[in-house]
Each structure stands twice: as C-alpha cells, then as structure tokens.
C-alpha cells in the first residue's frame, strides 16, 4: 500500500493525540463519556480556530505574532459591542478583516518582515482591547453562548465542532483552487506570479481569511467563558504556532495541513488535562507541556527519516 506524504504527515499528530487520549481514559475512565469528552475538549474549539488562522498565515511563509492579542480584541468586541448592538459589532469585525487584508498587502508591497508588522499590530490590538474593556467584564451574546453550550445527541459539541472546522478548512486549503494558489504562493510566489495570478490579491485574501477565523476564535472563546478581558487569549500566539507545527505544518514552503492543525490544537489542550490527571504539581505543568512538544517533534523527526529512507530504496 502506498501512502501519500500528506497522509504520513498526519500519522504522528493523530497517533500522539490517540495516545494521550488513551492515557487520559486509563487514568480517569469517567472521562470516557459524553460530558467527560466535552469537558476535555471544550476549550480546544477557540484554540483550533486560532491555529487554523495562524496556519493560513504560515502557508504563505509569514508568521502572525499578533494572533493572541487579536483574538483577545475580538473576544472583547464580542462581549461588548456585538452583544449590545450586533450591527455595529459586525461592522467592527468587517473593519478588522479589512485591516488584516491591508496588512497582507502592505507586507507584500513593501516587502516587509511579517514578524515585525504583526508585532506592531499586536500593540494596536492590545490597546484597542484595553480601551474597550479596561477591566474584565462584558457578556457573551446569547447565540454564541447557545452554540458553545449546545448538547447535540450522541457526539459532544466539541468533537462535532472540531470535525466541522477540520472539514471546512481542509476543503478550502487542500481542495479549492484558492487553496492551491495560496500554498503555491508559499512554495514559490514568483512562479505563481509568472503564471498570471495576482500574488498581492492572494496574500490579501489569505490574511482576510485568517482574520475571519481569528474572529470566530474570539467569539467561540467568549461563548465558553461568558465574559472577556483584554488579556484573555494572549497565550494563543504561541499555542497557535505550536499547534500548526505539531500538526505537521512547516514554517516555509506552503506545507500545511488543516486537519493536522486541528489535531495539533486538540493535542495541546489535552496535554493540559493529561497533566492535571497525572497530579503533576502546577509548578511543572508548563514545563511538562514543553516536554510533550519536544517528544512529539522528536517522533516526527524519526518518522521523516523513515520516510526518506523508503524513498531512497
């Protein structure tokens, strides 16, 4: 049987997720239930959405260091303006998407490093979030709360949402012609340009799409937590990058995997629960998360070597 390199790329993330899940079930059999699964993966939905947004940016060789502050900003908008006057809230979100598209164009036109531009933007989003919500507060829009706490029959909401996110983004990134152009821009933007496509348009659209997913992440987060504050999602910047890498994505070359990214986000969330089930002292939880990251990446390296050896034979 011949496996495509994309499938092989997915094996390690999927296997590590399964292993972690098995370990959690072994230690806490009661987690193997509808409520248990929902609790385990609930917080993964916003992280998965943010990871997808980061993955889109990474597919064109850029990196968004403002992801955490932008998701925080969106959460603040969702908990304040979107809740009181939905129309104005929607307008703000459309404006934010336009800013993301503009950022993508600016980075391309002036050939700027995306790390620095998004670094600057992270201050801007952080400042806007502080202006909106100087102290923690706000209320989640009822519909966002309803979606995030929905209890569909048989399969918990967290699982359905993850599968839905993975399926939709897999279609956009891997199957649609826009996705091919996007990954092509990451691989070699000059050849995409020579083939007659507007690279600046592709970049703007990619950034806009990433902004949209980050907005979803902010709304989903508020739906879960019911209120927001300006620092609510700061750790998403690093989590989203780690999620993409865990899921088999690469920093350059347009090599990304949406399904992998969602699995990566689930793995990161589960790692936290796993550690608390292990009764590891809270002091070491962050460190153990780092160790899990290293172990998974080491496994991936081993698999990549195996793949290469097979190719040489």
């Amino acid at each position: 049987m011949k496996l495509s390199s994309g499938t092989i790329r997915l094996i390690i993330p999927a296997a590590s997720l399964a292993l972690l899940l098995a370990a959690v079930f072994y230690m806490q059999p009661r987690a193997m239930s509808y409520t248990g699964l929902n609790l385990l993966f609930n917080l993964a939905i916003p992280i998965a959405l943010a990871t997808i947004a980061q993955m889109l940016i990474m597919s064109i060789n850029d990196l968004d260091l403002s992801m955490g502050t932008f998701v925080s900003f969106c959460a603040c908008v969702a908990a304040t303006v979107l809740q009181t006057s939905p129309l104005l809230g929607a307008l703000i979100f459309i404006g934010a998407i336009a800013v993301y598209a503009g950022m993508g164009m600016l980075i391309h036109v002036r050939d700027l490093p995306s790390i620095v531009v998004t670094l600057g933007m992270s201050f801007v989003w952080g400042g806007l979030a502080v202006l909106l919500l100087p102290s923690p507060g706000g209320t989640a829009p009822t519909w966002a709360r309803a979606i995030m706490t929905a209890k569909p029959p048989l399969v918990p909401m967290a699982i359905i949402a993850s599968i839905l996110i993975a399926a939709v983004t897999h279609y956009i990134v891997m199957r649609s012609s826009f996705g091919v152009l996007m990954r092509g821009t990451g691989g070699n933007d000059r050849s995409v340009e020579r083939a007659g496509w507007s690279v600046i348009g592709i970049r703007a659209a990619t950034y806009a799409l990433a902004g949209l997913f980050a907005i979803f992440a902010g709304i989903a987060l508020v739906g879960l937590t019911t209120s927001a504050d300006a620092n609510i999602a700061l750790r998403y910047t690093l989590l989203s990058i780690a999620g993409v890498i865990l899921g088999g994505g690469e920093f350059v070359g347009g090599k990304v995997s949406p399904i992998g990214a969602v699995i990566g986000a689930l793995t990161l969330t589960l790692a936290g629960s796993f550690l608390s089930f292990m009764r590891i002292s809270p002091d070491w939880q962050i460190g153990a998360q780092g160790a899990i990251l290293i172990v998974v990446l080491a496994l991936r390296l081993a698999l990549n070597r195996l793949e290469k050896r097979e190719k040489h034979q």
């Binding site: 201050f123 979030a129 100087p134």
Partner: peptide
C-alpha cells in the same frame, strides 16, 4: 490603551 496603540 492609547499608549499601546501609538506604540504599535
């Protein structure tokens, strides 16, 4: 808030 925005 303004300070952060301007810094950015």
């Amino acid at each position: 808030g303004f300070r952060l925005i301007l810094t950015g």
